[in-house]
Design a protein around this nucleic acid. Structure first.
Lengths: 394, 394
DNA sequence: TAAGTTTGTTTAATGGATTTACAAACATTC
DNA sequence: GAATGTTTGTAAATCCATTAAACAAACTTA
């Protein structure tokens, strides 16, 4: 109950709607926008002119007539500025520069050894500096920086806790904003991945989706009614620590029989070590190794993948029954093995889930691969930009 | 992207805000509302006058001066109309009439034998007729009827499927609206319970909460950001069919090791039958029996409750870790045994859940008991009324 | 009694959207 | 090719909810 209504709000709402149609239905004419939105032609004209002035849209020439004056077609000016997305991994930093439509124009990846907080931040800054250098000329320049982190943030730009980085209470947003003078958004890596898939990947036109990032552990991002759900303390994404075996083995989190003990890279490697102890003893277990063994027809490894796929399905069923999303997207390293996981996953899914919530559900593997989080980070930056330029509500 | 902005919308928003303050901070003066909302005194005055005209508020006299003219205190007129809530159970129909604040003024309960759809509907109509007869005189009369059903609805007033009633595709909203000419809202019983607890019970001032109705099975209602989450096909509430034992026994739903096989009335009775086969053979298992045995210090029964409490905790942990709500409310028949369930439930909860999401979490048993669903149904009716009278947004 | 405060209304100004009117550009038809 | 009707986009007038400013009434305090 904070936001009261006034003329300013009305304009913001309508401008946001008009821009939405220009972004998603382009090329489009003023008349058609008026028709689709219910706003009058005069209102649309006036708002479009403001968008033209602020370089967020431009006229692309006339379109086909349908029996009268030719319409002037409008296009979203996606190169009016660029968003910088960062995926801050445990051993790497991945950066992507996108235009305002989220289309990548520059990519960059560096390893970092993650020794001390200060060093990692220095690496991060160097990486950002490099991307700024590479950015094309544009009206708005770099409009924002989104950073996905392997930990939890407080929603105010602090990294509360990132165990694998060894970080606690780092005011990362402040640090980067002070350094570059550019708006910064921080969020969990799985949340970023969820937004990435929703905006640019397998989650488009889904309003309720769950993104599951299966790597060493299992993280997740939940989108409800089109908006990221962060939980009541910014901590919604630990579906990996949902127990699927109440008397199962103890997890490092304290719970028993956690999903990620059965369906994660770690789970896979552990079984693989046991299986291959004889003929491949001592070899470091890696995804590439297992994938090539499977390609070569190694039955034991193929069965291994099938087993992990089965357990993936068991957890997915819990999400389906409890949550009834319209889409579930599996991402992370393990998604690279989609080919070997899918059949058994679908089988246990179809055998176990309730028919009603399964009806309109789609389960898919990530379309963006390892880039979903970094592209989601770009989306954070873009959203923030549109809110701050008052062409978006809330 | 449907709702465009215009002056009408602005007024609706502000009127809704003003009414909100009158409802929740009464008695309150115009000046204080202006101060709290940021609206000008003139705007507040004008909106309040409209609310007075429509009988939704009234002036209660002057309040204490704080060094100037005495303020005129405003009160929400909670008896301007009455809401009728119905809990359509499998063997009973419970009806409650409340004022616009959700305070009960009439209650009624009948048994029905649930033989045929037509008969049940006839019973329902008779029940509604009786409550209408009992309703006090008021400006608006019965402002709406909310009905909670043990099944799923399509959000458009159809009961899609209610297995325990034997219903499928019954256009219940249409039927009741045609009969009485009063607006009707239909929703799942667990959803109604969640709303009931949020508005009037243990869930007040919680924005993200999960209500778990533990009866014969386990149903649930999820409230996110203050709004009911119905899932993508109106079917979000089957947390009872989340597996907590991937290789556990087969459930009637097709899944294995479902939560409700371990933590429900049925689970309790089944274990109780095994336990008491010797000394109480043949006795019909009922909650009252077990509760009185526990009160008498029967150790076996006390252990039984503790075990069910433990499994309740196992499932609750999954909700905490995956969902991070700020409140979890346990309702339904089994909540009557709160005293015997709580210790073991809390124990497994605290031993198993992640510390971060547990931090701000409260787990409580229902405050409304068997009345949560029926009061939630009233809340549905009241909300719909306020939307239709344009003193509420969306 | 005088001065200052608080409350709630009145009046004029503001700035959005809508309504109505209209000119330009175009396709179609005879 | 001229007449007709359609479509597009702009302009002017009007509408209306909020804001800002002024004010009167009611009250406390010194």
């Amino acid at each position: 109950m904070k936001q009261t209504g006034d003329l300013n709000l009305v304009k913001k709402i309508n401008k946001s709607i008009v821009l939405h149609y220009i972004r998603n239905h382009s090329p489009i004419s003023r008349a058609r926008i008026a028709e689709l939105t219910g706003l009058t032609k005069a209102t649309v004209s006036s708002l479009v002119n403001e968008l033209l002035e602020s370089s967020l849209a431009h006229e692309i020439g006339t379109g086909k007539s349908s029996g009268g004056r030719k319409p002037v077609m409008l296009l979203f000016n996606r190169t009016a500025g660029y968003a910088l997305g960062i995926d801050l991994g445990v051993h790497y930093i991945r950066a992507v520069l996108t235009d305002l439509n989220g289309v990548s124009v520059e990519e960059y990846k560096v390893q970092h050894d993650n020794a001390k907080v200060e060093l990692a931040i220095a690496e991060l800054k160097a990486c950002i500096r490099e991307m700024i250098r590479r950015a094309p000329e544009s009206v708005y320049g770099i409009i924002g920086i989104g950073i996905g982190i392997p930990g939890i943030s407080d929603g105010l730009g602090q990294v509360l806790f990132a165990p694998n980085l060894g970080w606690a209470n780092v005011p990362l947003q402040q640090i980067i904003e002070d350094e570059f003078g550019i708006a910064v958004v921080i969020d969990n890596e799985a949340n970023a991945g969820a937004v990435g898939e929703k905006e640019f990947g397998a989650g488009r036109d889904a309003d309720n989706l769950v993104y599951i990032s299966v790597g060493i552990g299992i993280g997740s991002g939940i989108i409800i009614k089109g908006e990221l759900y962060r939980g009541s303390s910014g901590f919604s994404g630990e579906l990996g620590h949902m127990s699927i075996q109440h008397d199962g083995g103890t997890c490092r989190c304290g719970n028993a029989g956690c999903w990620e003990l059965y369906a994660s890279e770690n789970a896979l490697y552990e079984s693989a070590r046991a299986l291959l102890l004889g003929d491949k003893a001592g070899r470091k277990m890696e995804m590439e190794t297992l994938l090539s063994l499977a390609e070569d027809g190694h039955e034991g490894v193929i069965k291994l993948f099938a087993q992990v796929g089965h357990f993936l399905g068991v957890g997915v069923v819990n999400i389906i029954n409890g949550f009834n999303p319209e889409r579930i997207i599996i991402g992370g390293r393990l998604a690279e093995a989609a080919k070997w996981l899918r059949p058994s996953m679908l089988q246990s899914m179809e055998g176990r889930s309730l028919p009603y919530p399964r009806e309109r559900l789609q389960v898919e593997f990530s379309q963006l691969g390892s880039r979903s989080a970094v592209l989601g980070a770009c989306s954070f930056a873009i959203s923030k930009f549109f809110v701050s330029t008052k062409v978006s509500v809330e």
